[in-house]
Write a protein that binds this DNA or RNA. Sequence first.
DNA 1: AAGTGGTCTAGACCACCAG
DNA 2: TGGTGGTCTAGACCACTTG
Lengths: 250, 250
Amino acid sequence: MHESAWERDEGAGPKLDGELRSAFGIREEIERRVRSGIWAPGERLTSERDLAEHFETTRVTLREALSMLESEGRLYREDRRGWFVAPPRLVYDPTERGTFDRTARAQGRVPVTRLLDFAVVPCAPRVSALLALPVGLPILRIRRQRFLDGRAVLYVEHHLQPDAFPGLETADLTGSMTEIYERDYGFSYGGMVFEITTVGLHPAAAEPLRMAVGSPGLLVTRAHDDRAGRRVDCDFEYWRHDAILVRVAA
Amino acid sequence: MHESAWERDEGAGPKLDGELRSAFGIREEIERRVRSGIWAPGERLTSERDLAEHFETTRVTLREALSMLESEGRLYREDRRGWFVAPPRLVYDPTERGTFDRTARAQGRVPVTRLLDFAVVPCAPRVSALLALPVGLPILRIRRQRFLDGRAVLYVEHHLQPDAFPGLETADLTGSMTEIYERDYGFSYGGMVFEITTVGLHPAAAEPLRMAVGSPGLLVTRAHDDRAGRRVDCDFEYWRHDAILVRVAA
DNA sequence: AAGTGGTCTAGACCACCAG
DNA sequence: TGGTGGTCTAGACCACTTG
């Protein structure tokens, strides 16, 4: 019976009062408003207390409905800041290199990158596995935060061998890493590997994404080789799960 | 401060009573038991009421903790059946063809496929976009359910042109579709495209996965061409988000 | 300072699953 | 049929964001 929620024509009428008061009914009504454009992408919803009153229910039930829409990617929240209508997903191809800015602009979005920090740190086990370096060896770590139309959608960690990139700290680290590699160090890429998996966000990723710790995220891990087959770098991309659609042609 | 939850050594001691009673503290304690193997993969947890009593909290808070672990992929639930410890993820490469069985066995898992149905249906819009066929044209749809070690992890819909595969209904549809194409119809593949995105499960996918409608899932969409560049088929794979890790070498 | 989201309590009823 | 998970109520306090 509820199957209709996913098959319904756009123009279907409002639900009965009884259904409106359940979490599922509220979910449907909000989804209808979002799809019809009554609530526009990026718009902040009114407070949970107001919405709960409007739907004649409690905050717990209302939040249940909002959470459903969050896991579907129609709404998103910023920790303690409120609920917002989710913008369209960015179509993203992890096999291409240094394309965040270009891809975003090609899709009519406004990308911004912020450098969080730049440090030499001991090689962590997961990095060791990807770069084939001993755990504890000093390596370069660059952490960045990336925005789409003002919304933080991505937290990235780049890990690379420090001796292969002397003087990297003087480069502009808010653009494409690939361009820097090519222009300043004459690197050209060979193969690559990527992984995609769902994760619960740890604090280091949750905070720059303005999400609550433990929220679901999509982790895209990438590792690149140069033409000689040497592993050059790897990165860990923590995406808001609702901000991205991966598309790859093989 | 809570950052330690993701960095802590395996052998760290139990938390203070105060922390144990918060959803986050409970999350940590359960995670510890899962990681240490006290609770084994596939094992069913005791009832929510028992757990709530054990942690001296209410069911609402307890469920909050369980939900965190669910979104992290450490626990999973089967609708109305209870909570279970999640088995390891299947490492899966969508660019390979017909590999569910082989991949699963190579990773020491026991795969099973069940045919749900086989029908000629009107071409849906999303299928039309992938197969470049008019909406409404009759096409073949095969729906299957796939298990890993007895757990339903995948619901798949295959869509193909009926006239290209006469007599397909007589084949064994619980194995690799690719093998059937090649052996019975002499097809050989050219390129392919795949997409990965998070979704809220609609009823048709949620039910065979034994999940609640609206739960988060991972949708892997694939479309294959033959060597002449003709689009042969497409499929929609709805995975339990915690059952899969996509890995692709490009 | 006010209002917000995040969290928690202590109940309750229902539909469903298993014994 | 008893126990389970799913859902819901009607409050409450706190930390934080915002004006």
